[in-house]
Structure formats: C-alpha cells, structure tokens
Nucleic acid binder design. Structure first.
Lengths: 338, 338
DNA sequence: CTGAAAGCGCTTACAG
DNA sequence: CTGAAAGCGCTTACAG
C-alpha cells in the first residue's frame, strides 16, 4: 500500500501561500530570515494542511536525525524499564525520538544493533554495554557520540560513563549486618568479568573487613544477573556446611530467584538469614519478606545520561558521573537492638 | 562536532571498485541486476570499508524507513516491558528498528508521539491506545498502518486489534472461587470507560452469575491501573461492613498496591480473602502470598501484533486477533476440597 | 526579508 | 549485466 494519500510537503504549503519552500523551511525550523508576519501565516497554514516535516529528508540535508539510540541488556528488567522511561522522557523534552534495542547481553547482538543505529544515523547512543563489548572499536570506527550507562568498561574509552556509586550504601548495609549480629557474609555477585559487578563485590568485601566480618571465598558466588542463576546460587549457599547468616545479592532479578529458593527451603528470613539486594524495585515492598535494597537513583541516572549525550552532540565535553545509591531497609534484614 | 570522520558512502565503495553507485546499491539491497561475482566483490569491499547505508537517504528514495513505532502507556509496567521486548525482537527479525514512546495514558501526549512518529515516516505503528484516543482521526489523516494492542477502541476503526480474550480464564477463576466457598465477590476494575477494563468486569460478572455468586455493585471499584489506586481501593473494600471473601484485580500494578494495603491490615489471605490478579508477572511467585493470576500470552500478543502490522504494510489484510489468557493458581486463593 | 538553486546519499526508471 | 541521470523532500549557502 505505502501511501494512499500522499503526505503534505513544504512544497504544498509554499504553493498554497505563493512563497518559496525556503521560507517555509525557515519558518518551521525557527531559523532567522523570515518576517514575523509571514512566519505566522506559514505556521498556521502548515498546521491546517497537516504538514509533518519529512524527517528523513530533513536529516539528509541538515545532518540531524533528531533520533537517539538506547541499547540496554533487557527492558524486562525493571531497572532498565525505568531507565528507558526516564531516558525517553528526557529525549522527548529535547525533541528527540528514541530507538530502543535489547542486547540481551550478547556482544554480537549489541554490535548488530549499534551498526543498525548508525545506519539510521542516530545522533548519539546511550549504551549499557555487554561484557566483551566491542562498542569501543565501533565508536572509534564511526564516531557517534556514546554514553556508557551503569557499567563502566575496562578498555580505556573516551566515552563518559554514567553510573551509580555503590560504595557508601554498601558500607551502610554491611554496617547493618554487623549491628544485627551477622558474622558470616555471602554474596551472590554478578559476572566475574563485569566491572560494575566487581565494584559491588569489592565494596562489600572492604566494608566487611572494616567491620571485622568474614566473607569466605566459598560464599562468593557469581551469577549472570538472571532470576534462574539467583535461584541456583542461593540453593548452593543454603547447602553449605556452615551457612552464611547474611547474603547480599547483586541485582533485582537474581534476588527474585533467590527468594524462590528460600521459599522452598526451611530457612527463616531474617532470623537465620538476612537478605539484601542491589537494585530496588517496587515489588520488594510486597515480597515475602519485603527486601532490603540499595536503590539506584534511576531518574538521576537517566537524565544525567541524556544530558551528557546532548552535550557530546553539541560538541561540549561530558564528564563521567557517579551518583550515590541509597539503602532502603525492609524486613529481610534483622533490626538493630536498641 | 557532528562527524569528525565522514562516514563511508556507496559512492566511496563505487569509486574504489570503479563501478557505478547503482551497482553498489543493487548489490547491497539484494535487487537483481548485478552479476553474482560483482555482487560479491561489492559486498566484500563495503564490509571492509565499514559502509553502513545511510538510511535517511535510502528512505527518501525508496519510501521505506525500516522503522516501526511502539506507543505504550508505560514501559515500566512489566506487561508492557515484556511486550516491548517481544515486539522489538519480532521487528528486528524483519529488519525493522523500533521507536519507543510512552503515552503515560495521556491522549495529548499520545497524539504528539503519533505525529512525531509520522514525521519520522515509520512504516507502521503498534499502539496501545489511551481512553479518548484520537488516533483514529490521526490514522485517517495520514494513513499510516496501525495495529491496536491490548485495548480495543470504541469508535469503529479499520485498524485491527490484537488483544487477549479473558473470558475463558476469568470463568475458570470464578469457578475456583465458587469451589472454595467464596460467596461475595469484589473486583478492583480498571477505568470505567476503558473497553478492555469493561470486558474483564463483564466476564467476571457473567461468570459469577453462572455460579450463583454475588458481585454487589458496592464491591466494584474502578481504579486507574496504578499501584496507588489499587492500594486505596483495597483499603476501601476492607472497610466494607460486609467484606468480600474474594477479590479480582484488573492489572498487575493495582495488585501490587492492593498487596500493600492487605499487608497493613489484619486480613488473612486466603483464609478470609482470596485474591487474584489479571496480568501475571514473575514477581507474583515471591509475593506474600504468591498471587493467583491470569497470564496474558505476551509473546503471542507481541508477535501477532508485528505480524499484523507487517501484513498491513505489505498491503495484505490483517484481521483482528484474540488470544486466550490462562489461569495460574497460586497461594492467594484457597484450594478446592478434594 | 525573500527566492532560485544546489546538494544531502541514496534508489530506480531508462537506456544500452 | 551495467551505467548515467533523475529525483525523493528537505536545508542552506548564495544572491538580491
């Protein structure tokens, strides 16, 4: 079918008004060079005629597609869903549309999407990079501004990173564990080679050391951020000869899985085991038990990422940003004495 | 900055090979009219040179942007997040990119997004329409293929609707209520004027009538599909002089809110009150208690929507589709005797 | 302030 | 099978 009724063009508007298409373009894009009265008439007529400027054509000439790309591992993860909403809003506020892609943590797929987005000539990309991300090579290859979201990347790249600083909140969490008599800590961490996972683990170990608590190597498990891995690893931990009395889980989906595992065991939470999660989601308020979590300031993250990206697009420098996370205490952890 | 290093064009590839841009274009788009040996050489060289065909230019000439639009009320709702993932995958499989927008259930905002997407000349749109959606007028105005998702629309539109058929599963749920001694049913429904909300309510009432159960008008509450409204309305229901012994909630977010309300009350679920939700989400497995839910076949919905849309784009007819929902029983409902 | 004309990077009749 | 040339719908120097 394609187009039954041909869409209105600026040429149609120009003809109707007996002016040049140049004037119509200038009037609509807000460029100088049209008298205010004419500009008004043109805008009025364009509206009446239902003109929606053909962006591909506009882009071809002006080099601006007014499109940004967002590549996350999976929008189904509430953390990324909220990020997607925030970023889409921030983009819309700046008159940008958003192309969405899910890398599903597959570097190949990520790479295909990045190339596809470059084909569309997005003006910039917010990327939550996979592990062995070759976005760097890509980035240098085509020179599209990129902002790295949530996960830093090992290779030295010029792309700014917008991420959470977990250290302080994790310190608070471990303090809570210590104050409530936990002595033997476990962590269900993320992939071993993922920098943000490593950072969360390191912060956890360091805080434990400060409080004189143990985090035996045998109680550090590495999952892949999916619910199933959380389930599986929690089962392993519960089978340890000397069980941990507190476990910190590195993201919300693994916590979902871990809760399933706990539910099928006879372990009482928090009496025998305190549980805390990185990532806070609304559902943690109504889980059994409600889960103590480290909340990432999603709105701040998303807006910071878009701001950084538009800065890069405008040729301004965009520094990396770290935003503090916040501890939200719920019933999955014991409460301190007094 | 824009482009530090100018991107490779088919002209560059043509020059390198001493052939015409026409041949390069034909080779890359898979059109006939290039010998196989030359086609291979061109593809090879294009890869080497890092050519990513400039889609805006391609679109301008061919009228195909290879872009689809998806407008949902809010990706933050797990139902829409899963739909977005599925649709994005299905689109990618057909070599389409996806523009994402959140209407946030605001008809004005929806309208702006639809117009913006038309500006981008998306080839088709999957739309989860708001209540007083003027997408119809829009649709007729610009003639972009649209598939309506999840919510049918009152005004007779030619756009096909892909949605769930809740009747059978709701019948089963009410059967479960009846079999477990529930007599006084309540429903926290969606907005009164939303067709899919009405349909769920009607199916519930009819099934109740078949089983000889009451659904007093005073126990039918209308929320707006947000967690807060579920919380508020559940509180109201719990304050009724004669309380319901079973409540059916029309979507997952209102159920989240309702669980908060229940948690703060002294009501025992399911002994005093059975709870069930429309929409199944993974979190319902670990809530307190786990929630019986009517699962919408999200993957089927999403793929059906994309298939319908690509059919419309290809000029083929696309009938509306209704897909059966499925009851998933969990501990928030009493179990039948035997 | 306004317009005529070139040109963005492709695809596609048209011609050979 | 291959190429020269027109043209998609805009924006933007350039000229007045």
């Amino acid at each position: 079918m394609a187009d039954p009724q041909r869409a209105t063009t600026i040429k149609d508007v120009a003809a109707r008004l007996g002016v040049s298409t140049a004037s119509v373009s200038r009037a609509l894009t807000g460029m100088p060079g049209v008298g205010e009265p004419l500009r008004e008439r043109i805008r009025e007529t364009a509206r009446e005629m239902g003109l929606h400027t053909h962006r591909p054509a506009s882009a071809m000439r002006s080099k601006r597609t007014r499109t940004l790309g967002l590549v996350v591992s999976d929008v189904t993860n509430p953390f990324f869903a909220e990020l997607a909403l925030t970023i889409e809003r921030a983009a819309a506020a700046r008159n940008y549309s958003l192309l969405l892609a899910n890398s599903e943590d597959d570097p190949e797929q990520e790479s295909r999407y990045l190339r596809s987005m470059f084909g569309h000539r997005v003006e910039g990309i917010v990327l939550n990079p996979t592990l062995r991300s070759d976005h760097l090579a890509y980035h240098e290859e085509v020179g599209v501004p990129i902002v790295l979201l949530d996960r830093a990347v090992t290779t030295g790249t010029s792309a700014p990173v917008v991420a959470v600083d977990p250290d302080h909140a994790i310190g608070e969490l471990v303090g809570l564990f210590a104050a409530t008599g936990c002595r033997r800590l476990a962590m269900i961490s993320g992939p071993e080679d993922l920098p943000n996972a490593r950072r969360r683990l390191r912060a956890f170990e360091q805080a434990a050391a400060r409080h004189g608590l143990q985090v035996p190597k045998t109680l550090i498990a590495h999952g892949d951020y999916t619910a199933d891995s959380g389930d599986r690893l929690m089962r392993h931990l519960l089978r340890e000869r000397v069980r941990p009395d507190a476990v910190f889980i590195a993201n919300n989906l693994m916590t979902l899985g871990a809760l399933r595992a706990v539910r099928e065991s006879s372990v009482r939470v928090p009496d025998e085991l305190s549980i805390a999660s990185f990532d806070d989601v609304a559902w943690f308020e109504v889980t059994d038990p409600p889960v103590t979590a480290i909340a990432q300031p999603v709105v701040d993250l998303g807006t910071a990422a878009v701001r950084a990206l538009t800065d890069l697009i405008a040729g301004r420098p965009a520094p990396s940003a770290r935003i503090d996370a916040r501890l939200v205490i719920r019933a999955s952890c014991r409460t301190p004495p007094n």
